[in-house]
Amino acid sequence: DHDVVPEDKFQETLHLKEKEGCPQAFHALLSWLLTQDSTAILDFWRVLFKDYNLERYGRLQPILDSFPKDVDLSQPRKGRKPPAVPKALVPPPRLPTKRKASEEARAAAPAALTPRGTASPGSQLKAKPPKKPESSAEQQRLPLGNGIQTMSASVQRAVAMSSGDVPGARGAVEGILIQQVFESGGSKKCIQVGGEFYTPSKFEDSGSGKNKARSSSGPKPLVRAKGAQGAAPGGGEARLGQQGSVPAPLALPSDPQLHQKNEDECAVCRDGGELICCDGCPRAFHLACLSPPLREIPSGTWRCSSCLQATVQEVQPRAEEPRPQEPPVETPLPPGLRSAGEEVRGPPGEPLAGMDTTLVYKHLPAPPSAAPLPGLDSSALHPLLCVGPEGQQNLAPGARCGVCGDGTDVLRCTHCAAAFHWRCHFPAGTSRPGTGLRCRSCSGDVTPAPVEGVLAPSPARLAPGPAKDDTASHEPALHRDDLESLLSEHTFDGILQWAIQSMARPAAPFPS
Rank of each mutant, 00 (worst) to 15 (best):
R345P: 09
P457Q: 04
G273Y: 09
H286W: 10
A310F: 14
T430A: 05
D493G: 03
R323G: 11
D481T: 03
G436W: 11
P253W: 15
P327W: 14
L308A: 09
D377A: 11
G391P: 13
A428P: 13
T331E: 10
S488M: 07
R283A: 07
D264W: 06
D481N: 03
P397C: 09
R283Y: 14
Y361T: 02
Q392H: 14
V268M: 08
Q257L: 06
G453P: 10
Q316E: 10
L287P: 08
S502Y: 00
L496R: 02
S369G: 14
P383S: 11
S488T: 11
P293V: 14
D264P: 13
P459G: 10
Q392R: 09
C277H: 05
C266D: 04
P293H: 07
M503Y: 01
A396D: 11
P292N: 05
P459A: 06
W302H: 04
T358Q: 06
P327Y: 13
A417K: 00
P457V: 05
I495M: 04
P253L: 12
Q257E: 06
G407A: 04
C442A: 02
A467S: 12
T430M: 15
P348A: 09
G346A: 08
A267V: 11
G241W: 15
E326Y: 11
L486C: 03
M355A: 08
H474K: 07
E484R: 10
S299F: 14
E274K: 12
L486D: 03
H490F: 04
E314S: 12
E274Q: 10
Q243Y: 13
L437Q: 11
A508C: 14
G453A: 06
P389S: 07
P328W: 14
S245R: 07
Q325V: 11
A267N: 08
G434R: 10
L258H: 03
L496H: 00
G244K: 13
G349Y: 12
P328D: 12
L373H: 13
H479I: 11
R505S: 06
P433A: 07
P464N: 11
P298C: 10
N262I: 08
W302P: 10
F285W: 08
D255G: 12
P324V: 09
M355N: 05
A353P: 09
D279C: 11
T331L: 13
Q497D: 03
A248E: 01
P322C: 11
E320K: 12
R323K: 09
F285A: 09
S378V: 11
P466N: 03
F285C: 14
P367H: 06
P282M: 13
D356R: 04
A248I: 09
S473E: 06
G402T: 02
H479S: 09
L373S: 08
T311Y: 09
F426V: 05
L437V: 08
G341P: 11
E321I: 12
L376F: 08
G429E: 04
N394A: 14
